[in-house]
Design a protein around this nucleic acid. Structure first.
Lengths: 215, 215
DNA sequence: GTCTATAGTTCGATAGAC
DNA sequence: GTCTATCGAACTATAGAC
């Protein structure tokens, strides 16, 4: 399906020139930017090509379709951002800080929060090319969060009336919702501060200093 | 621009026929459904017309443009759902339950949560026809919530380390985020239960029974 | 740059309610 | 017999694709 030169250098050929890889990454960067601004449906391939400073035809030499391009962008986003291993591998007492650092890192990547929020909601529609991708991504997020808060619960770090399920679900939802507010009106939402306070409300009062969370 | 018969009955004319109003509301209902499924950009007027069982041209007899139709749908949504006065007018001790009832009522209207979530995020893009509408709507929501939690704070109902600003922002964000999760995977999110527990974490422990919230 | 499909939209004529 | 409601066909712009 995707016979672009960078992925599958053909046999008995000279292979991709150096310029090829650079052009390719320019296209991906432009696509990332446009998708993050207007989503997938409203994005136009011509606009992406224009920003990458190539012709529309050029783009189809590297990517077989608009959908193909979306998949590459999603792949890149998953690898560059939102690395859930930092939570899974963190020692139990560092989980809250690991979550906050992950949040901070996600915010630092330009357009990252925006592309996730816009594409995730757009892909709710069945038949959307990213529908399965985000269903799977949310499943992963729930799983990772549940594991993290589960180990906190068994270590006695969670407040007595807080279940790991609620902690995972509410943290994930709050995170998403704060991003939406921030995108609608950047001055009106302090994502990091609210996330921190929410985590405080989840942990046992006696442990909050131990976990590095001050109210 | 908009010379549809229902809005501006012309002088020296017979006025709209009886069937006209019903056709008009069929179109609005169809538009509501389609917008809630795929958003504004991807919605096609032909599809809306087909669901209303009329021709594409017919639709433009009643609405001057797709954008006009969107505005009518948003107007109807605001009036039928999310009535913020129930929060503003509630006595301070009933505010948590008023919030939960509002949430429940919003969920009961078919497609309501979905159309709000999808259009709100889609309209983040500047130049989107609903951009201003949702900016204004979120401002209203923040204002109402802040007033509600503010009066709870002065009544001593909030926990000592919870500010009205945090209570308002986090509740709104959690609400939105739970909706997103519920739309991605309906079985994975219990919107009402999580909202209730969040409100519990905001109120002072000594007041939680007084407010009708049990943990 | 060209091709084809489809989007939103308009027009002109017919059918039907009053 | 009007005036409203309706629809098929055509127009224009823009999309993705080659």
């Amino acid at each position: 399906m995707n016979d672009n030169p960078a992925d599958e250098p053909r046999i008995s050929s000279r292979g991709p020139y150096a310029r090829s890889a650079e052009t390719r990454s320019r296209i991906v960067a432009a696509a990332w930017a446009v998708f993050s601004e207007v989503g997938y449906t409203k994005a136009s391939v011509s606009e992406i090509a224009a920003r990458a400073e190539i012709s529309g035809a050029q783009l189809f030499y590297y990517f077989s379709s608009k959908e193909d391009l979306l998949n590459i962008v999603l792949e890149e986003r998953d690898s560059v951002a939102a690395d859930l291993r930092t939570i899974e591998e963190a020692p139990v007492q560092d989980i809250p800080e690991a979550l906050l650092m992950l949040a901070a890192r996600n915010t630092d990547i330009p357009g990252n929060v925006r592309i996730h929020t816009i594409l995730a909601v757009e892909s709710i529609a069945e038949g959307h090319p990213a529908h399965q991708h985000f269903q799977e991504r949310y499943r992963q997020l729930r799983e990772s969060f549940l594991a993290a808060f589960g180990s906190m619960a068994t270590a006695g770090y969670l407040a007595p009336d807080i279940s790991a399920e609620y902690a995972a679900q509410s943290t994930l939802a709050l995170w998403d919702g704060l991003h939406t507010q921030w995108l609608v009106e950047p001055r009106a939402a302090d994502v990091a501060a609210s996330l921190r306070q929410h985590l405080c409300s989840l942990v046992d009062a006696r442990c909050s200093r131990l976990l590095g969370l001050q109210r």
